[in-house]
Design a binder for these strands. Sequence first.
DNA 1: TATGAATGAGCGTTCATTCAT
DNA 2: GATGAATGAACGCTCATTCAT
Lengths: 205, 205, 205, 205
Amino acid sequence: MAGGTKRLPRAVREQQMLDAAVQMFSVNGYHETSMDAIAAQAEISKPMLYLYYGSKEELFGACLDRELGRFVDSVRADIDFTQPAKDLLRTAVVAFLSYIDTNRASWMVLYTQATSSQAFAHTVREGRDRIVDLVGRLLQSGTRNPEPGTDFDMMAVALVGAGEAVATRVSTGDAEVHEAAELMINLFWRGLKGRPADIPSRADA
Amino acid sequence: MAGGTKRLPRAVREQQMLDAAVQMFSVNGYHETSMDAIAAQAEISKPMLYLYYGSKEELFGACLDRELGRFVDSVRADIDFTQPAKDLLRTAVVAFLSYIDTNRASWMVLYTQATSSQAFAHTVREGRDRIVDLVGRLLQSGTRNPEPGTDFDMMAVALVGAGEAVATRVSTGDAEVHEAAELMINLFWRGLKGRPADIPSRADA
Amino acid sequence: MAGGTKRLPRAVREQQMLDAAVQMFSVNGYHETSMDAIAAQAEISKPMLYLYYGSKEELFGACLDRELGRFVDSVRADIDFTQPAKDLLRTAVVAFLSYIDTNRASWMVLYTQATSSQAFAHTVREGRDRIVDLVGRLLQSGTRNPEPGTDFDMMAVALVGAGEAVATRVSTGDAEVHEAAELMINLFWRGLKGRPADIPSRADA
Amino acid sequence: MAGGTKRLPRAVREQQMLDAAVQMFSVNGYHETSMDAIAAQAEISKPMLYLYYGSKEELFGACLDRELGRFVDSVRADIDFTQPAKDLLRTAVVAFLSYIDTNRASWMVLYTQATSSQAFAHTVREGRDRIVDLVGRLLQSGTRNPEPGTDFDMMAVALVGAGEAVATRVSTGDAEVHEAAELMINLFWRGLKGRPADIPSRADA
DNA sequence: TATGAATGAGCGTTCATTCAT
DNA sequence: GATGAATGAACGCTCATTCAT
């Protein structure tokens, strides 16, 4: 009805479909979203979906890829590796949270969906690993005197996990981006130890 | 033979069913697990499941409740609020990770499953909030000179998020509990700012 | 409606389903028959079909097996191996054609259907081989002075092929059983070489 | 490259399409062959198929017609009606089996396919009738003293049926053409009655 | 002439759920 | 209390067929 029946070049249709799919998946979840619903949302017929993407699983995979790509690109674009460490941290956190905030419907839930099906564990893990890698390198380059054996990778896992959790709050409107960013920066930068009169405890294995 | 027409007291049957359900859900996911499979695993008939739990969704909810309860109880039991702050942190982190490590099949996947279905968002959020609350209070009580306006709750969100991310690594066998715990404690306690010879960077928001 | 919704023991339902399936397959062919149509014909729901037979292919296979079994049993039952050769031939031919004639809707078309799908080539060939074997042994035992090296098996193939072709005519009503039988018997017994000096057998329908 | 936008005369295109269709139908069967597959094999676009043949059914019908025509022509060409009866039989049988043997992929399977779909029963029957007629006339002309009322037509049905069955064995490689031919000739000429007193006709390969 | 783009319609299959016993 | 038997409702997917260019 609304503009539907035109002959569109392949590339355009592809985006149209992915848009619809991301939209539906993010709202209703992978299993609760039928191909019929996606086709309807995209204002095309179901066979088109199959012609372009082969199967529901592949369609979802394509969504995942696109959104993941966009996300990583967006965050990476904001980061300037020549900044001093703390600025770097700040920029990254803000970029991360801002992206989620702006694209909440799409990415955050998509991400959530993907986590739940064995079939996408691989893609998700891969995507998450890309982010973790990015953060890991960021940490490494930002740490002047790294203790030998520091597991930057696992540290990145923790940071990203924290980021995702906070981002979820942001994406559901329960927190404001910049406040959340500030809180994370402080938390990660200074640690819990205590502020003014910091007396470092002797590291205990 | 196995199962047969035994008359079992309600409480026993309930656990038997929940055990089977948790087991199946955790291995195959919510949608990929059929009521048939659960009934078979529990060695009872399908109508029993419906008699006791009404629907698949409610059954899953019951699983969630039980596992969440066990988890919270277990972690809380290990915590001694009279400990000094850092010990408290350490105890909590270790308790958290240990539980996940020990009950990976059950809880971690269950948790993962629940996250992905709109239907359980509520239960999951509720559960997570209980944990966040716990951690939030922990933080509050452990901080000697809280800056006014510190959002302990959001800080707890970040910590729990980090914990979950690390826990996932632990649960998939990609990390060892105590190493992961130590890393988290150090990270959270000291922050990224710098370790031994901390020289604060100039930029300080 | 018409007697449908009763709780029937497994064995009864199985026959009910096979009856319906054979009926529909024979009338409309394998591909043109939908599981819906079979379920409707059997006055049961589609899931029952799947519960009992697993898939359309397996259901068709079960039809094939049953009908093949009935056919072979029926023909074999009529044959008395102690008869003299020509009587044996006559009995066999009549038994063969009579069965087809009586069960035309079921077997002949089922047989025809099966031939066309790669998936059933095996079953059909197996069934046909059983018949060919039977006929082959019959020929062997009925031939007094077999020429060395006589390929009774291939001869049986030819006879069965002829029988099938004639049977098809019978099954479509284009020929009458006993006339057709007589013709086949004469043809096979005397051959084409020449008739004149033949002494007609007593039995003449 | 291959195919492209060539402008070909109608007749050439038609053969190109039929070749492709026969090829695909014979390998995969009627239902298992999609119009897409045929178009791809013919290296033309699907609308062309529809332009030339209107529908899948009609396309298949055209295949049937062409192949049937070729078959009948081929067999008829080999037959010399002035030959003595037994030679005639031999020639016909050999022509029949040889054609099948040489064109197994195309015709035998096509034939098999057609038999199974109600939609083509008519065409197939028509084709088979042409062959039966041919054989019937052959029999009639070859029989010196026909008993009054001899049903040459039905006899032809039997012979053709036998031929088809043996041909199938030949086409699957389970029998050699000339051996099979010899066997059929002997069987039909002499009959099963018994050999001993047989006076072999002069021609004996 | 020739085709890429598009779809209506239908099929095999599965599953949560409920009677009747 | 416990279950074998049964089904309504969907869903993923494919295919013959047709426009619009």
